[in-house]
Design a protein around this nucleic acid. Sequence first.
RNA 1: GGGUCGGUGCCCGAGUGGUUAAAGGGGGCGGACUGUAAAUCCGCUGGCUCUGCCUACGUUGGUUCAAAUCCAACCCGGCCCA
Length: 412
Amino acid sequence: MTDNLKLPSWLSRGIEEYFPIKGTDQTFSEIIDHAKKNNKKLRVKLGIDPTGTDIHLGHSILFKKLRAFQDNGHIAVLIIGDFTAQIGDPTGKNKTRVQLSEKQVKENAKTYLTQLGMGKPANESILDFDSKDRIEIRYNSEWLKGLNLNSIIELMGSATVSQMLAKEEFNKRYTSQVPIALHEFLYPLLQGYDSVVVQSDIELGGTDQKFNIAIGRDLQRHFKQDPQFGVLLPILTGLDGIKKMSKSEFNTVGLTEDPLSMYSKLEKVPDNIIPNYFELLTELDLSFLENSNPRELQRRMALEVTTLFHGAEEALKAQSNCEKLFLGHKEKVGEIPEISLKEIVFPVKFFYLLSALKLFKSSSESKRSIKGGGVKIDSQKVINPDLVFNSKNDLEGKILQIGKKIIKRFEN
RNA sequence: GGGUCGGUGCCCGAGUGGUUAAAGGGGGCGGACUGUAAAUCCGCUGGCUCUGCCUACGUUGGUUCAAAUCCAACCCGGCCCA
């Protein structure tokens, strides 16, 4: 049986894969179509683990898709994995994942929701928090905290070791003799159990979530529910153009970053991922990609994305400031982030100043960067880390540049 | 539980008594070039208000003028056996 309906474009854009093509009796597109005709609300699950405090563009594509479901009449079931956050998703990289306290997790969750626009009107926020019948926020500790051993055994009984080892991440670790702790097998099961509890019809996730979503289907079947469909979205490549966007790789753009920093980061992204960014982060028709100047594309993409989060006016201002800055017309630039000299005790050595202002991780690093020629004041390279500034007057109003990314204006 | 191998800087990985803040590579950062991209080339890549001082090779103790390197105990991991 083939699927002769097409997915609507609000849903199909930028998705990597959906599965299964055909559920128990209908194809995925039939279900979407049927829901629309009958005004049926589908329950669309998206889980986030509140392990950090910043949401970046990579996450945003999931949330934007979730919003699209909302806008088309469905229910966003946002699961805050406050409980699972404490186990840790076995991503291999995070072997030293810290145990987060309950309090920490709650706070992270709160900042996530704020960043997603909770409290703002729907047209200014990423998710629609206004339409109460289209948003459901659940914390998974609600049901996971009290699971008793019997239930846990039941969950564990529903999957096999070889299923688990089929998962690429586990498999890689197993074959390369990197330890896998038993409790790590629990993570997919618990995440899958979330689907059972919230009775999800569709689960959204990155392609790396395929396994977990599939486990969710198994468990739903086990608990006599219709298994969910999975919609997999691509993993956004980070600013380096190579690795996935992730806080630990320092290649992210945060949703709440100021326009200038957002624009300037995006505008220097490698060429090869530009089309990808256009497709995943904007709503533009992509036909113009074919014959455009690559430099223009960078600028346009940066502008579009910045507009999305800060509005057209702010974005244009950022673009113009950014360009003026690199052309050297600093005096015309009004929007450079300021950095306060209040806490500084003069006289002060240059390297110590930068370290004290937290512009570098350490004073040694500050010193090295200065020596290496990476630091400018008013466009002049300053390469003497021991240069002494005697008073605020030496610096006030001047513009500091560190590498290509950091630009600050000294203020009292 | 027994046997065996192993635990080195952000990561991988060399080093098996003496300028060792620790080869080499990757990654990262900075510079030149460029389109603020890529490629290439060059430099930097433990901390400290720093011509010096302090921490570092799983942990703790020991041997020695001197240890990442030798010894002991412990902790952690892989594999084989049970």
